[in-house]
Design a protein around this nucleic acid. Structure first.
Ligand SMILES: [Mn+2]
Ligand SMILES: [Mn+2]
Ligand SMILES: [Zn+2]
Ligand SMILES: [Zn+2]
Lengths: 127, 127
DNA sequence: GCTGTTGCTTAGAATAGTTCTAAAAATAAT
DNA sequence: ATTATTTTTAGAACTATTCTAAGCAACAGC
């Protein structure tokens, strides 16, 4: 899978990928560093940052920017969106259905909608 | 307008608001600090940060998180979204029409779509 | 075996946007 | 006028992330 995306499979990247892709999750670099530590393996924090950056560039994970203070990485790289609870910090998947009223019907229990932020990322067409 | 939103109108906030709301724009705190300086007025950087935070809490501006390294503030607080060009850094408004194929038709000249990131911010219903 | 080359990992330093602190200044209340 | 409250300010502190430069692993050609 990683080799298919043009990523050299090193020992550390293997360890990181095992923990990261074990399940669909949203983690910061620091959280992932701790998760790796909990398995007993030792990988430096710099390598966790480097590897997440590499995985993101290669399309293996998605970066999520919901607040300026930290970047989340989403091990589920299929096309989907998120509910973010500003009170609890919960980050919950929304399946890819864009209609606004549809989203409203699916709000997490006990929450009300605040703001819908949509960013369409584009790139210059290489000439 | 600001008084209506429960913001005390001080001299510095007035200066900042004049520059910020002069037109629809997307600025970082630092950019706004420079814009204020260019008018000849003197407001500290701390006050620019404090004021933007206050305006955001009061709903006068919208925070936009498109990359982890800086927060943009949108002087257009009407409900809309954005095209972000990852190559140029351009941030362009999208009128509030959510259909995905509609967005594709409106891509900025010379760009191709990369990723659509949608974050629905919710809050706990106060009980 | 060695030897060079390349890519990867690492600890710690540096960076930079943002927040915090504590004191002065402005404003409001009594 | 005196006191209380709010705001501004400079600079220090904070913190997520990136950078640096040295060491290490993998590999190829001898
Ligand atoms: Mn997810
Ligand atoms: Mn705008
Ligand atoms: Zn997700
Ligand atoms: Zn906008």
């Amino acid at each position: 899978m990683m080799v298919a995306h043009g990523v050299n499979l090193t020992k550390q990247r293997r360890i990181i990928a095992d923990v990261l892709f074990e399940r669909n999750q949203h983690v910061t670099a620091d959280q992932l560093f701790d998760l790796v530590k909990q398995t007993g393996s030792r990988v430096s924090k710099a390598t966790v940052y480097n590897t997440l950056g590499l995985f993101a560039r290669k399309g293996l994970v998605r970066e999520i920017f919901i607040d300026a203070s930290r970047t989340f990485y989403d091990s589920n790289n299929s096309h989907h969106h998120h509910f973010y609870n500003v009170d609890t910090g919960d980050l919950i998947d929304i399946k890819d259905r864009l209609a606004a009223h549809f989203i409203e019907q699916d709000l997490p229990e006990g929450t009300s909608m605040d703001v819908v932020d949509l960013v369409v990322r584009v790139r210059n067409i290489k000439s």
